[in-house]
């Protein structure tokens, strides 16, 4: 790993004012993404993972929203840039892939036009034949058959998997340094999901683009990422290499999540390991640790768990945010299986 990361996020907070109260969708989130690396952000609904992704490109909008903290891309704080300077970085340095490829493509223009637009925005002087070649090449690269013919088709004429390929082609047309993929396979069938994940991995290897993969699916995380950030209630609760997270989780939430997924994957019947309760509402976050009401390791009445928000601290090869002491967190996994 190099010294200056490609992306450095520090103390990112995003809050929205709603009629029901202030929603702290993202709270004090910090992480790095290095060049060429694949980082996964995993979390359930309301964990703040998508808001984080949008904040990285300053895409969250609305008068009732406020963002604080710093997002450094190659050492430049995006927060300090003008809207126009940020615009020039969108799609060129950082590109995005969304969950539902049908709604992400503009239904009124041919897919060729849309890929061309992504290129032209950052190459205003490009001539027609050049743009055409770029479009054909990038559609071909993501596996659209007969790109010369298909570039004139409209989004609704493609299947879900093909549409997602087109969105990926659009994202890669300017060879960005970072690709943010927000639930890129959630709307797709499992056989198509496998194709898309393979495509993302292949492209990452070919072009050295760093990938920030956001998903709720631990299987997808395990198969594609190197480093994992686990989010819960708008905060990062654990961060470690993918092996550490899956083999030696140090946060009770990660452990619980793995438990439910693992017992689902394993054969045979018998009670599944569920985490009791449901993910918290961001308007009424519990005091102290957001996971406390569902946590089986909670330290009890009057303890720190109910009064102070835990911060990330180093445990083993990773970090986690929990009031249990470090030694206990290292033994977390044995506490369950034993």
């Amino acid at each position: 790993m190099t010294d200056t990361p490609l992306l450095r996020v520090r103390d990112l907070c995003v809050s929205f004012r709603t009629p029901d109260g202030v929603v702290r969708a993202v709270d004090s989130v910090s992480f790095d993404v290095h060049a060429g690396e694949t980082v996964g952000i995993v979390g359930e609904s309301g964990s703040g993972k998508s808001v984080t992704a949008n904040a990285l490109m300053r895409l969250n909008s609305g008068a009732q929203m406020s963002t604080t903290g710093s997002i450094l891309l190659d050492g430049v704080d995006l927060g300090s840039l003008s809207e126009e300077e940020v615009r020039l970085r969108r799609g060129r340095d950082i590109a995005m892939v969304f969950q539902d490829p049908l709604s992400a493509l503009n239904p009124f223009y041919s897919v060729g036009d849309q890929v061309a637009e992504a290129y032209r925005v950052h190459h205003p002087k490009a001539r027609r034949p050049e743009v055409r070649d770029v479009v054909v090449e990038s559609l071909g690269r993501v596996g659209i058959p007969e790109p010369v013919k298909r570039m004139y088709s409209f989004p609704h004429e493609f299947s879900g998997g093909m549409r997602q390929r087109i969105v990926i082609a659009m994202a890669l047309v300017n060879s960005p340094r970072l690709l943010i993929a927000d639930e890129p396979t959630t709307a797709l069938d499992v056989t198509v999901q496998a194709q898309i994940l393979e495509l993302i991995q292949r492209i990452q290897q070919e072009s050295g683009t760093a990938v920030l993969l956001i998903t709720h699916d631990l299987g997808v995380i395990a198969e594609t990422t190197e480093r994992v950030i686990v989010m819960y209630g708008g905060r990062v609760v654990e961060e470690a290499s993918v092996e550490s997270v899956f083999e030696q989780p140090t946060h009770p939430y990660t452990l619980g999540l793995l438990g439910s997924v693992r017992s689902l994957d394993s054969a045979g019947r018998g009670s599944l390991r569920a985490i009791p309760g449901s993910p918290p509402s961001l308007i009424h976050l519990p005091a102290g640790c957001a996971f406390r009401p569902r946590c089986r390791f909670e330290l009890g009445e009057g303890s720190l768990c109910g009064s102070s928000v835990p911060t990330l601290s180093v445990v083993g090869r990773g970090k986690s945010a929990c009031h249990l002491d470090v030694a206990e967190r290292e033994r977390l996994i044995t506490a369950v299986d034993g």
């Binding site: 359930e44 997924v261 569920a274 985490i275």
Partner: peptide, 14 residues
């Protein structure tokens, strides 16, 4: 449903 909640419903059904 969220993964952590899926297991609850499946347990209930069983």
């Amino acid at each position: 449903l969220d993964v952590s909640v899926q297991a609850q419903i499946l347990n209930l059904l069983e």
